[in-house]
Design a protein around this nucleic acid. Structure first.
Lengths: 234, 234
DNA sequence: TAAAAAAATTGATATAGATCAGTTATTTTT
DNA sequence: AAAAATAACTGATCTATATCAATTTTTTTA
């Protein structure tokens, strides 16, 4: 009998929610209300879409690009997740008693986002139950993902964490066993809860063990099963 | 000028949402629908209200008692949060594409919970936008809390983590500087991401430094400000 | 194109916390 | 009340990772 791990949420760095357009649940009036209270903005690589602690006056929807959602600390940040196109990036700041962004968001590549006025957005939440129910779906799918990462970063050792990240980037972001790793070593450190020196050492070990191949920034996974094993058992 | 930390969500082990009764947002018909599809159940100390991976056929509302919400791993668990009376404990499992509990819940003391049939609950979410909007509030307040803990357990060292837990138990659960610590050393280990030996040693160090006083299970905080400093700076 | 700056890598060392085994204290069972 | 089981504590040792400083490589700027 194959030894199986307990049924836990896989620790992924990105939420892979199916592509559905929840805006189609809006009435014409609601779509209009949101439309006249929105801005479409282009962000360059490295720019900040939301700043932790600043006024959360809008809800941000990443229409195209790639961004990281992170908690800022005095000396170290912690990346909660990476967001791809057609995903909200600031839904979790929308709750009564809160008027600030609870985390920061910045882009990895040139990106486009739609900013919805938060009062208009809340008004639609309170009036359109099907829309609200869909938002609940998105929030809870996100929560399941973050819980997986929380467990990973708290209870796994460094090799397992790095293996998780490589697999996640491959499966969910680049959707290929070969990809150009445009995240810096510091970003990888913030994503794994390790120091950047540790990340570099483990990448080297994986290369020397013929698990991956590194050509400058290009990563090619040679032994995916081996990564899975490292992810599972450390 | 007093040196201040960056604006981060305080890492608490429990969600301190204000006590509001979201059920008052229900219409008579909705209340009736939930009422005929619910069970009020008593659980003894140590019993499991929800088992990770098992069918999430109901939504659980803890009416009285104390419970822990945790992720189970092969060798170690991770406690996500502690839940006090009048709080939901399984809202985050409610999303399309999911039919299992994504975490486990068990009681610390004898408790009572109301179990709502999930289909009835979802039906109300889809039809009552004010109720859904309130659920979104609860979910996002919960998310903010868990993000704080995620940062704490990933980026803080052991003394800061233990200080956080002591402060949180004091402020949010027992609401006193003196309390009976009914959590086992193993629970504290799962709550801090440490080993139980490390937890024991740090409690002893805090006692020897006159930060806390220990009489069997009774904890008395002698120097709250010192705990805060340790929490902030490690 | 060259210089400067930043990022990444590397080697050595230090530290934090885990693990292990044994002992003691507390709780549970008979 | 006594025995057994479990939990907590303690000391020693080990391991994993951080830190530090220096070097090399890559990227950016002039």
């Amino acid at each position: 009998m194959i030894k199986e791990k307990k049924n836990t949420t896989p620790p992924t760095c990105v939420v892979s929610t199916p592509h559905i357009n929840i805006f189609e649940y809006l009435t014409k009036e609601e779509a209009e209300l949101l439309n006249i209270n929105q801005r479409n903005v282009k962000f360059k690589k490295g720019e900040i879409l939301a700043k932790q602690g600043s006024f959360a006056s809008h809800v941000i929807f990443l229409r195209s690009g790639l961004a990281k959602v992170y908690l800022e600390g005095d000396q170290k940040d912690l990346i909660l997740k990476i967001v791809t196109n057609n995903h909200f990036v600031s839904l979790s700041s929308v709750f009564d008693g809160n008027d600030s962004f609870i985390y920061s968001v910045s882009t990895y590549v040139d990106s486009e986002a739609t900013l919805f006025n938060i009062d208009a957005f809340k008004q639609v939440l309170r009036s359109n139950s099907k829309f609200s129910a869909q938002i609940i779906n998105l929030l809870n799918a996100n929560t399941a993902q973050v819980y997986g990462r929380f467990y990973c970063l708290t209870r796994k050792q460094s090799h397992g964490r790095v293996a998780d990240i490589i697999m996640c980037l491959s499966e969910n972001i680049f959707e290929s066993h070969s990809f150009n790793l445009n995240l810096s070593r510091n970003d990888l450190a913030d994503l794994t809860g390790l120091s950047s020196e540790s990340v570099t050492r483990i990448f080297k070990e994986f290369r020397d063990s013929n698990i991956i191949e590194i050509n400058n920034k290009d990563i090619n996974i040679l032994d995916y099963q081996r990564l899975k094993d490292i992810s599972t058992y450390g």
